[in-house]
Design a protein around this nucleic acid. Structure first.
Lengths: 218, 218
DNA sequence: GGATGTGAATGCATTCACAGCA
DNA sequence: TGCTGTGAATGCATTCACATCC
């Protein structure tokens, strides 16, 4: 699994391949060609082959790719072949929606603790989790050995909470606040800015469009 | 505002520029150089200048860019300088979180109707909006002249609901279901796959990283 | 025949470096 | 001097095209 020569867009496409393969799998497709997989997602067959080849030789000449085999490999590459524990900071509307979201579970992510700064929320039960004070982050992270956090707090609080998370050893943050977080180089931030996505949609609707397929998020 | 020669990544960066400029604006910064703006976001100064130059000449040699002026221009370019009406399909956890999300309002998006297929949810009031049956989509869209929809329904229903939306003339969909929607070429789909984002974070944490700055979502 | 994997060729995005303006 | 805007140069990602294998 060599690195540093893998194009960033290819890493995103990996996730799309996996998603599409699982759809094919549900449809009882056993084998798939790069052409078919590409067509379903709006990529060329060469693109698909090259992307996959960055990570190994998964195909069978004359046959294509075995769906279940490739799913397994992609999960391994992406690190979602085993269960990861995740913590969530922010028990507002978004935080609660994230907690209830089934998609994370399917990918092997389990939210094991939820925190909020608001004393009126602390102690409340959401799903089967108790909301804890953000003062407890350090002890919980240490105890449960958590490396990943989701940040669903108001933008004004985001950087401060991120600093807290860094201080206790969190190495990956899925950030929902509309701000460029400042973090050291060994920490990864993946950001989701909902309003920004809508703004992008707006632009692409006003003559801005040109993309050949349908999907975005590249 | 010529098109077709504008790199897609540049369009995304436009939104990041705007977001950062608003932060500088709140900090009472009146003028900003491409170097300063770039540094705040992890881009080179040349990148910033070239991106902005795709859309016009907004800078002042020797001075930089006037913050408020550039904010105004970017909003105009992105189409968020006026208020847009948006409809929301799906009154589940995510749908309710989207309805409550303040970020949309700030960018000029107003959710004016919410729909759900679940009869037990229809008629319930969420915020100051009544959940309506998805049967009513056609009449509401026609009456309110809506062109943009947010799709927050379960993945199994997503394509069918999307087809409904297309049929009544929706031209842009912000899709939260983890599926590549099939739409005609004149319709724009912008997708947000929450679990996919977490998966990407996972990959980038496991030796996968290389990005110079902190932000993602490119 | 039908498909992969991959060097070589192309095309696109970023960076360089500088002319020109305040 | 300080900074923009932009052609030219570079570097990166995608596509082509073909040797190879089932």
């Amino acid at each position: 699994m060599r690195n540093e020569e893998i194009p960033n867009p290819a890493v995103y496409r990996l996730s799309f391949y996996l998603r599409q393969l699982e759809s094919f799998h549900r449809g009882d497709r056993h084998t798939i060609s790069s052409k078919q997989l590409g067509e379903a997602l709006g990529y060329s067959d060469a693109q698909v082959r090259k992307d996959l080849a960055y990570f190994g030789q998964f195909g069978h000449p004359g046959i294509g790719y075995r769906v279940d085999e490739l799913i397994h490999q992609l999960k391994k590459i992406l690190g979602t072949d085993k269960i990861s524990h995740v913590l969530l900071v922010g028990a507002g509307n978004l935080g609660r929606a994230l907690l209830a979201y089934k998609g994370f579970v399917h990918k092997g992510f389990k939210i094991v603790a939820i925190f909020d700064a608001d004393a009126t929320k602390v102690g409340r039960k959401i799903g089967d989790l108790l909301v804890r004070s953000d003062q407890d982050i350090a002890s919980v992270v240490a105890e449960l050995q958590i490396r990943v956090a989701m940040l669903a707090v108001p933008v004004q609080a985001a950087q401060a909470v991120a600093d807290q998370l860094l201080a206790v050893g969190i190495k990956g943050i899925l950030n929902f606040a509309p701000i460029a977080l400042n973090v050291p180089g060994d920490v990864v931030v993946q950001s989701v800015d909902l309003a920004l996505q809508l703004e992008q949609l707006s632009f692409r609707m006003t003559l801005g469009d040109s993309s050949p397929g349908d999907e975005s998020s590249l």
